[in-house]
Computed example of a mutant assay.
Amino acid sequence: MEGRPDLKIGLNAEEFRKYYYLKKELVSFCKDNGLSTSGGKLEITDRIYNYLDSGIKRNHQSHLKTKTFVPDNLDLTTKIEDNIKCSEFHRAFFKKHLGETFSFNVVFQKWLKENSGRTYAEACEAYKRIKEEKKVTKTKIDRQFEYNTYIRDFFENNKGKTLQEAIQCWKYKKGLSGHNKYEKDDLIVLE
């Protein structure tokens, strides 16, 4: 079995896409080759792919920082601002109205960003609904968190197996060409 190729200049872009690399490996490659290291793992992966494919350095497009808007006298009737930032100020507000266990989660943050103009009272109701839905539905893990998805799928299909076994299968899988989704055949590494 051929192993995962080293991430270095000369690696074919298509070959690069077939394998899993840690974010720290991607950042290291960017630093060594004068590419921007900013952005999430998917953005950095795309930047490296384009560089390996074309030789052109396309760096992160910086966005001008916008001042965080915090409404005066924020209350339940206040409208959610455009481009809301989930700040400590907002966290304190939601803890006051939803309890000390409040925490921003990805689904709620997305709801806030997609619902500017609605009230903070509606946001509180949405948070409660999201928390209830989370109890009965499987949370979608974003694409860049392949490890988390793999481990969850491993345990769903292998009751009684250990985390160490799941990690051993993950390490085997990420070294293979292709996708990094759990498959029953990955258990071969445990034999």
Rank of each mutant, 00 (worst) to 15 (best):
E2Q: 07
L7R: 09
G10F: 05
L11N: 10
L11H: 09
E14V: 11
E15A: 08
K18T: 06
Y19G: 05
S28Y: 03
F29D: 07
F29A: 09
C30E: 06
K31N: 10
G34C: 02
T37M: 04
T37V: 13
G40M: 03
G40I: 00
G40H: 04
E43F: 05
I44V: 14
D46W: 12
Y51P: 06
D53P: 00
K57P: 06
K57I: 08
R58C: 11
H60M: 09
S62I: 11
S62M: 12
L64P: 13
L64G: 10
T66V: 11
T68K: 10
T68R: 07
L76F: 07
L76E: 13
L76A: 08
L76C: 09
T77Y: 08
T78D: 02
K79F: 04
N83G: 10
K85E: 13
K85Y: 07
C86A: 07
E88A: 14
F89D: 14
H90L: 15
R91T: 15
F93H: 07
F93Q: 11
F94Y: 12
K95E: 15
S103N: 11
F104W: 13
F108G: 01
Q109C: 14
W111F: 14
K113F: 13
S116P: 02
G117A: 10
G117D: 03
Y120S: 01
A121T: 01
E125D: 13
Y127V: 03
R129P: 00
K131H: 05
E132C: 05
E133K: 12
K134L: 14
V136E: 14
T137I: 06
K138L: 10
D142Y: 05
N148L: 15
T149P: 03
D153Y: 01
F154G: 03
F154Q: 03
N158F: 08
G160H: 02
T162K: 11
T162F: 06
Q164C: 08
E165P: 03
Q168C: 08
C169A: 15
K171Y: 06
K171G: 01
K173F: 02
L176Q: 14
H179D: 15
N180Y: 05
N180H: 13
Y182A: 04
Y182W: 07
Y182P: 01
K184W: 09
I188R: 14
V189A: 08
L190V: 13
